[in-house]
């Protein structure tokens, strides 16, 4: 199979630009990256489908071609475009929702992950065993001599 170099270079360029954008943390840029890579893959499918030719409809000719273009590649691209469009709409709504909730649309770190890595820094069992535990049922309004000690405020 032979192909032209121009589309191949274009595919490479689109993919690398897409990967670069995907590595950002802003959601809209990541989405743009995703769309660029999607278009690169669609272009690749079109090229591997073979050379251009007549439209794949019986009795139609175009531009004096003698062969028919591969309809399967076009069907695949159509499906892929529809799927990418649906997901892009969903990502945009997620970005908007994230912006409404947090006033930014960056990809956040996992808070539970951060907790676990903090636990690793200080000795985890020590916290669990030795930390003073508040006992809410022993809370009174009466002043208490231990009130001043941190962690024991208000408890007897």
């Amino acid at each position: 199979m032979t192909t032209h170099i121009v589309p191949l270079v274009l595919i490479g360029g689109l993919t690398s630009a897409g990967v670069y954008l995907l590595l950002e943390r802003t959601l809209t840029r990541m989405l743009l990256g995703l769309l660029l890579i999607g278009n690169a893959v669609n272009l690749l499918i079109l090229i591997v489908g073979g050379p251009s030719g007549n439209p794949p409809i019986r009795g139609r000719t175009s531009d004096g071609h003698t062969t028919t273009a591969d309809p399967l590649a076009q069907a695949m691209i159509l499906t892929a475009i529809v799927i990418t469009m649906g997901v892009a709409a969903f990502v945009l709504s997620l970005a908007y929702r994230s912006y409404r909730l947090t006033t930014h649309e960056d990809v956040g770190d996992d808070p539970e992950d951060a907790k676990v890595s903090e636990m690793a820094a200080i000795n985890a069992p020590a916290i669990e065993e030795d930390r003073p535990r508040p006992a809410p049922e022993r809370d009174t309004d009466a002043p208490d001599e231990l009130d001043a000690l941190p962690g024991y405020e208000g408890s007897k």
Binding site: L22, L27, M30, L34, I37, G38, V41, L44, I45, V48, G49, L72, A73, M76, A80, I83, V87, F90, V91, L94, A95, R97, S98, L101, T102, V107, G108, D110, P111
Partner: peptide
């Protein structure tokens, strides 16, 4: 808030894997 945060990374990773799969399909074809 939590679900949107988790959802964003899930959607992004899943879509990347789908595009890689599509790339593989193009190569197979």
């Amino acid at each position: 808030k939590d679900r949107v945060r988790a959802g964003i990374s899930y959607v992004m990773v899943s879509m990347v894997s789908s595009l890689v799969f599509l790339f593989g399909i193009a190569l197979v074809y």
